[in-house]
């Protein structure tokens, strides 16, 4: 329910911001030598000559999966939600978003796997040996990771590993499923994404090292961990069954929410490495005052975040018996 309210709020805000910007998409559509006649026609064609609430109403009507609920005719039927057409190239926004989404998804989920692969062992080991050399090195890494901007890290990685060493490709994206020419398939896909993943994962890996370290240290001090040792449980069992099981509960929640946030953070990484993902699409759309495309990306990202939060809630209820739904 709240998700729905949130969704409406987000889309309205996008509309209002666009309305407030002193730019005229219709004028842009007519090119450099725009005649008044052309602008008027274009504005009518794009729908920007209507009041804001009418534009929003039309957008919302297109988006709803159920149609035919007007006051005069009542013939409800399901239809595919439609995000309209781009102002600039008249492609349907649905197709634009659907083409860009897999790229961002590859980046974000691959990045999440990447950062967890770094954060889990480092976090756990530094919790087990606080103040050790490893712990101190990890803390420096965390500090750098939190302070440094992804664009900077991305450029550094691209320069040293991509340009100087030539180990990894600097730009481009290869489709996971459909090979086109010599570029495609899982291997090429992963190969092209290594640098973006590393860039993207750096900040989150840093945050997660800190969080996992704190959680594991806290769990190690719990009474039930002492109970487990008093039962005679060997250390690996104490860690696996009693410490980690409890310490990683909050990490699961955080992970779900952060993947949502990361969809937004992907903009920088996508720009640096020229990946044709949602972030890059959004930036291009904003530069061209292309409201439907921007709105499409916003709608899609909002839906993703809402869905992820829901999944996390359900998952949490499944793994933590204390908040299990009855």
């Amino acid at each position: 329910m709240w998700a729905f309210v949130l969704f409406i709020a987000v889309t309205i805000v996008t509309y209002v911001i666009f309305y407030a910007i002193p730019a005229n998409p219709a004028r842009l559509a007519c090119g450099q030598r725009a005649t008044a006649e052309c602008i008027k026609r274009a504005a009518h064609y794009l729908g920007t000559d209507r009041p804001l609430y009418v534009q929003y109403g039309k957008f919302f009507g297109r988006l709803m999966p159920v149609a035919g609920l007007g006051p005069n005719n009542f013939s409800p039927h399901f239809k595919t939600p439609n995000l309209g057409r781009s102002f600039t190239n008249r492609l349907t926004v649905n197709s634009v978003v659907l083409n860009a989404a897999p790229v961002t998804a590859s980046l974000v989920f691959g990045g999440a796997v990447f950062w967890m692969l770094i954060a889990l062992p480092v976090g756990i080991l530094s919790a087990l040996r606080p103040r050790s050399l490893l712990d101190r090195i990890a803390m420096v890494f965390v500090l750098v990771g939190i302070s440094a901007h992804p664009v900077w890290i991305g450029l550094l990685l691209a320069y040293f590993l991509g340009f100087k060493a030539g180990v990894f490709p600097i730009t481009g994206y290869c489709d996971f499923i459909n090979p086109s020419g010599n570029c495609g398939g899982p291997v090429q896909w992963a190969y092209h994404l290594v640098l973006p993943w590393a860039t993207f994962a750096f900040l989150f890996a840093a945050l997660y090292v800190r969080m996992i370290r704190a959680n594991v240290m806290e769990a190690l001090g719990e009474d039930y961990v002492r109970t487990a040792r008093a039962k005679g449980a060997p250390e690996w069992l104490v860690m696996r069954s009693h410490v980690l099981r409890n310490a990683l509960l909050p990490v699961v929640t955080m992970l779900g929410m952060d993947i949502g946030i990361a969809l937004g953070g992907a903009i920088f990484t996508e720009s640096v490495f020229g990946l044709p993902g949602l972030g890059k699409t959004a930036i291009q759309a904003i530069e061209n005052f292309d409201l439907p495309t921007t709105q499409g990306v916003v709608v899609f990202a909002t839906l993703c975040i809402i869905l992820l939060t829901l999944v996390v809630d359900l998952l949490y209820a499944w793994i933590d018996p204390r908040i299990r739904l009855t």
Partner: peptide
């Protein structure tokens, strides 16, 4: 074998 002071926290909640 040992029994601890606080039974609320001495059993693993999960």
């Amino acid at each position: 074998a040992m029994i601890f002071q606080d039974p609320m926290t001495s059993l693993n909640p999960v």
